[in-house]
Design a protein around this nucleic acid. Structure first.
Length: 136
RNA sequence: GCUAUCAGCCAGGUUAUCGUCUCUCAGCCUAUGGCGGGGGGAAGGAAAGUCCGGACAGCACAGAGCAACACACCGGUUAACAGCCGGCUCUGCUGUGGCAAGUGGAAACACCUACCAUGGUGGAAGAGACAGGGCCACAGAAAAUAACUGCCUUUGGUGCUGAGGUUUUGGAAGGGAAACCUUCCCUGGCCAAGGCUACUGCGGGUAAAGGUGAAAACGUGAGGUAAGAGCUCACGGGUUUUUGCAGUAAUGCAUCAACGGGGUAAACCUUGUGUGCUGUAAUGCCACGUAUACCGGCGCUUGAGGGCGGCUCGUCCGAUGCCGAAGGGUAGGCAGCAAGAUUGUGUUAGUAAUAACGCAGCCAGAUAAAUGAUGACCUUACGCUCCUGUGCUAAAGCUACGGAGUGUAAACAGAAUCCGGCUUACAGGCUGAUAGUUUUU
RNA sequence: GCCAACUUAGCUCAGCUGGUAGAGCAUUUCAUUCGUAAUGAAAGGGUCGUCGGUUCAAGUCCGAUAGUUGGCU
């Protein structure tokens, strides 16, 4: 019996370590896909194959309510679309840390966030494939 | 019913699917971990600003003095406060009533402001300006123990007047021989006591008048005086004080006496009262790791340095010590941390803030930071379309109510140690009070 | 989380102890030049971030509020 597909986003899938984040900002690579800027880093096998974090600059959105809402929307869109990437990483014996930064100036709709996140995830999948060639 | 103001309360709801954090219960596995499952809970009235006040923790058991800061009518309330409640005084706005003056009117009377009384509703950083110095632009005589103009006056000078004195010329009368003498008159000169509504120097008195200004030395009237003045008196108003009465008190009313030299303390200051400082990223513990190395300086009981706000003192710690330069490591976990000045509700006391007691409940705890996404229905407001009935109309049509469908909108805003306040933001709704207005009775 | 500082002309800044807000650059006009620049002369431009209070009078003193910037760990 095939296990049911679950869309989760638990604690261990979140990027929480201060050290890891600093490393990511220092050494990681990045690309932009408006309204996001994405930092990523691929590493060897790990118990947590994929960890992600989200941020909104307080310069763009002064009110905490708006920042929270954008982060929630981003998290929701990511949760529903990251499963394939996670599977890929598991198969290829790799781990990745990803960080999303919202750089837009206006409060977005959920639909547009969902679509853009889809683009980002597919691009990340492509990157993972390419990197495997280089690594091996 | 509508509008305005004030006060209080609420802050969209139900459900499906997929998720997040946490507590708890039992279970399984490859067991310091992981997995899925059941059950409970999961933002606010402001969680915000960080403006006050506490709890709690550390620094000496938190000490002394100065400095600094805060507060400032009275009483109550509280863990505490710059908060809150009640009162007092002053004051803004407003309603009603009275009424000098003024306006209109032939008159009756009406209108209406100053003022008074009273009601409502706001505001007050509301101690002290005889403790002290400072400042008060421009204008104005003067901005604070004032004296410029003016008014009055002593005295000196000048001017005018001038009783009187003296003298020149001339005339008249008398005496005389004459020279001349005497008297009177006219004219001119000189001296001059005194007087003056004149001018002026010096000194004194005075604060009534003086175009200014935000502010001008209690106001009006009379007496009084050299001229004047609270100098005196009457009326009015103010400040301080004595006594009596009312009140816990601030204070009010009456009374006796004194005073009259402004404003500014939200500029310095004085008086009284209070405050030690730093903040949960405090603080304690565990784990991991490096460099107690090297270089320069200071010091080792005659002591460097430190004990977290500025200085002085006091006191305590202090030698594997302190400072600097360069460099290295860590940035994980647990406690603090969720049962409390607690929440809901009721009773009693109190005008109230609030307090006491009873009953019931346990109600966020994240840490790159949880409470979300999507759909459906309901609620409220507005727009559009349709329907049928009522009203107007001959009809078309129009408007309102009702029903259905559809679309849009539903605020301000997100816990980060916790409480009590304050301030600010806020769609819409509900309740109460007061005032105005309209309709009906 | 905690704590500071700043906001004045289009720009960069002065303005002390309350008394008619100024400088430099920029802008406009005129002169100079064949013309431009430079130079010289003149002019305009400010609710002193916003609201309230104290005072006769507030850019200045006090309170609130908005925005900007910085620091601590």
């Amino acid at each position: 019996m095939e296990p049911k597909q679950r869309y989760t986003f638990k604690k261990n899938e979140k990027l929480k370590s201060r050290k890891a984040i600093e490393q990511l900002f220092k050494e990681g690579q990045s690309f932009s896909n408006f309204p996001f800027r994405v930092l990523w880093k691929i590493a060897g096998s790990n118990s947590n194959p994929l960890q992600a974090g989200f941020a909104v600059g307080s310069k763009h959105f002064k009110k905490a309510v708006d920042r929270n809402r954008i982060k929630r929307l981003m998290r929701e869109a990511y949760r529903l679309q990251k499963n394939e990437l996670q599977q890929m990483l598991l198969q290829q014996q790799k781990s990745a840390i990803v960080f999303f930064i919202y750089v837009g100036n206006e409060l977005p709709e959920y639909e547009s966030i969902f679509k853009k996140t889809g683009h980002v995830v597919s691009r990340l999948k492509k990157i993972t494939d390419e990197n495997s060639v280089v690594d091996s």
